[in-house]
C-alpha cells in the first residue's frame, strides 16, 4: 500500500477526472446525499473529458495514484458530438504508454456519469477500488 492516511490507508488511491457541468454535479450529489466512498479518492475537474491529456493519466499513476477514472459525458457532452470516441482514444493512448512502463492497463478506467448519477459513482468507485486492490504490486519502470 502506498502513502495512505488514517482509516483510509487500506484503500487504493484513485484520481477521477470529472466534467464541470455533468459528472461533477453527480459526484457533488453523492455528497449532498451523504453517501460514502473511500477518502483516498479525489477529483480534478475538467470542462470535458476529451480535454484530458494522456500524459496526465500516466503522471498520476507514476506519482502515487493507483488508478485513474475518466468520468465522461457520453452523448450528453455539450461540446463535442464525438466525445465518447475522443475520450476512448485518450484512455487508449495513456494505456499504450502504461504498457511500455509495465503498469497494468486496468489502472485506467472510463465510464459515462450523468449529473444525478451519485449512486452509480459510488458503485464505480467501490468496484474500481476492489479491482485495483487485487492487482499485483508493480515495480516502477
Amino acid at each position: 500500500m502506498g502513502a495512505g492516511h488514517g482509516a483510509g490507508a487500506a484503500s487504493p488511491r484513485i484520481l477521477v477526472f470529472s466534467t464541470a457541468n455533468i459528472s461533477d454535479p453527480g459526484i457533488d450529489l453523492a455528497g449532498s446525499q451523504h453517501r460514502h466512498y473511500a477518502s483516498t479518492i479525489s477529483t480534478i475537474t475538467v470542462p470535458c473529458s476529451s480535454s484530458v491529456q494522456p500524459r496526465w493519466i500516466v503522471y498520476a499513476l507514476e506519482h502515487g495514484f493507483d488508478g485513474v477514472f475518466l468520468a465522461i459525458d457520453g452523448d450528453e457532452c455539450a461540446y463535442l458530438p464525438d466525445c465518447n470516441a475522443r475520450s476512448s482514444r485518450i484512455a487508449a493512448q495513456a494505456q499504450e504508454r502504461l504498457r511500455e512502463l509495465g503498469i497494468a492497463l486496468e489502472r485506467v478506467r472510463m465510464a459515462a456519469l450523468c449529473s444525478v448519477c451519485s449512486e452509480a459513482f459510488v458503485k464505480h468507485m467501490d468496484e474500481f477500488a476492489a479491482l485495483l486492490a487485487a492487482l499485483p504490486v508493480e515495480v516502477a519502470a
Binding site: 479525489s42 502515487g64 493507483d66 499485483p136
Partner: peptide
C-alpha cells in the same frame, strides 16, 4: 494548453493531492 487546467497545473494538483511525502513511486 487549456487555461485553468494547464498541464503544469494538473501536475501540481496531482502532486498536492498525493502529498509532500511520497514513500513509493508506485503503489498497488
Amino acid at each position: 494548453d487549456l487555461l485553468g487546467v494547464t498541464t503544469a497545473q494538473v501536475e501540481h494538483m496531482i502532486d498536492g493531492m498525493v502529498g509532500p511525502v511520497r514513500e513509493e513511486v508506485l503503489v498497488s
